[in-house]
């Protein structure tokens, strides 16, 4: 028996889904556009120049487009677009490289900036992917990456499971597990990033019908690639019941279907001596009690 962790995602299938989505991704790119705009806004607040930057999982270039209308672009020398899907890259111009986020092809300490808009949630080993990113960064290099969080597609997850239980007597995994916001910052820390920050943006999209949501997911290349996914396609009866349950439980007054997406944005720096460092325990020069203008009691003493 192998002790390797089980693989959650079938990466080859994920690549095929992305290849297939290359032509359609522009029709359903609102999430990535939003994540990209947010990443660029964060970069605007960081007065640094980045001679060599990589966009991991560039897809149809949402980050490059967001950068094009920002003053940040002038502070970036070369922006390399990397993607698992060569078909996706074929829709782009400029410096590009086909690369697997799980096996990065960049030399250690070679990059000044790595950005990523909604691609890393498909990695089997997110901590490992983050470690590789950190290793590829120069000291004091910056990573800003957006991934989908645990609350994403909660409505669809519930309705699909419920419908499958009702009709098939059991449910298979149809929707990815996503990282929770709480896990995210500790993931960065485990990957060796300094000054890790993670925050959460919850987006609710209102669809005319649950089927339109499924259409969008397909157009984005975001459909299920779980290795242990249910191999049989969803039956028409299950699909119909899913839509019914979805609208019954979540439908709004106008009969539309709200869908939740959680965008977690991770920010971390490759460690460098110039960054603020925590002091050694016991090296404080001022008593906490003095700072709080209170009286200090020894541990165990009752006030």
């Amino acid at each position: 028996m192998s002790s390797a962790p089980p693989l959650l995602f079938d990466r080859r299938l994920h690549r095929r889904r992305l290849d297939r989505a290359a032509a359609s991704i522009g029709t359903a790119d609102f999430l990535r556009v939003r994540a990209a705009a947010d990443i660029v806004e964060r970069l605007e607040g960081i007065m640094r120049s980045f001679p060599l930057a990589v966009d991991l999982g560039a897809r149809d270039g949402a980050i490059a487009r967001a950068l094009a209308s920002s003053a940040v672009r002038e502070r970036i020398g070369l922006l390399v677009e990397a993607d698992l899907s060569p078909a996706m890259l074929a829709t782009r111009g400029g410096p590009r490289v086909a690369a697997d986020e799980e096996h990065l092809p960049f030399a250690p300490r070679s990059l000044d900036l790595v950005v990523s808009a909604l691609a890393l949630h498909w990695t089997n080993d997110l901590p490992g992917a983050l470690s590789q990113i950190r290793l590829s960064l120069k000291p004091d290099g910056l990573f800003i990456g957006a991934i989908l969080g645990g609350g994403t597609l909660a409505e669809l997850r519930w309705a699909l499971t419920q419908a499958e239980v009702e009709i098939s007597g059991g449910a298979g995994p149809r929707i990815s597990p996503f990282a929770g916001n709480f896990d995210a910052a500790s993931l960065l820390q485990r990957a060796g990033f300094a000054l890790p920050v993670s925050d959460l943006d919850t987006v609710t999209v209102r669809y005319a019908h649950p089927l339109r949501l499924l259409q969008d997911l397909r157009a984005m290349g975001e459909t299920n690639v779980l290795a242990e996914r249910a191999r049989r396609p969803i039956s028409r009866a299950v699909l119909a019941r899913t839509c019914e349950l979805y609208l019954e439980r979540y439908g709004d007054a106008e009969g539309r279907a709200p869908a939740t997406f959680e965008i977690i944005t991770l920010t971390g720096w490759a460690p460098d001596a110039s960054q603020p460092q925590p002091l050694k325990p016991g090296s404080a020069k001022t008593r906490l009690a003095d700072a709080l203008k209170t009286v200090e009691f020894r541990a165990g003493d009752k006030p």
């Binding site: 096996h103 092809p105 250690p108 070679s110």
Partner: peptide, 15 residues
């Protein structure tokens, strides 16, 4: 290929 990209590429299997 942009020489600045070529310069930083390594083998993804062996690094």
């Amino acid at each position: 290929v942009d020489p600045r990209l070529l310069e930083v590429l390594v083998c993804p299997v062996t690094h």
